[in-house]
Amino acid sequence: MSELTATHFLTLSAALFIIGMLGVLIRRNVLVIFMCIELMFNAVNVSFIGFAWEQHSLVGQTFALFIIAVAAAEAVVGLGIIMALSRRLDTVDIDQVHELRE
């Protein structure tokens, strides 16, 4: 691997994605889970841009741009939900939120 190839980026992307996924699965603080989701988004972006670079195509970058926009929307709504949650239940521990059970 003396030259930079897309494999580098894909490996980085995979590592970031799986770290993010582990964070979502392990952590209990909703805010941290939220950040881990952002991390996963980012990992996907790395893949897209890596492919775009390798294939001399800008479609991947376009996708990444849309992902950033969607992530912004997701962040707004997600943080709104977290605020509402902490107001209503006074907690950000995800294990305390199980109203869906009933």
Partner: peptide, 14 residues
């Protein structure tokens, strides 16, 4: 089947 725990759902998704 619904436990109401988000963590479990996340595990199922994974």
């Amino acid at each position: 089947v619904q436990t109401g725990l988000v963590a479990n759902y996340a595990l199922a998704i994974a």
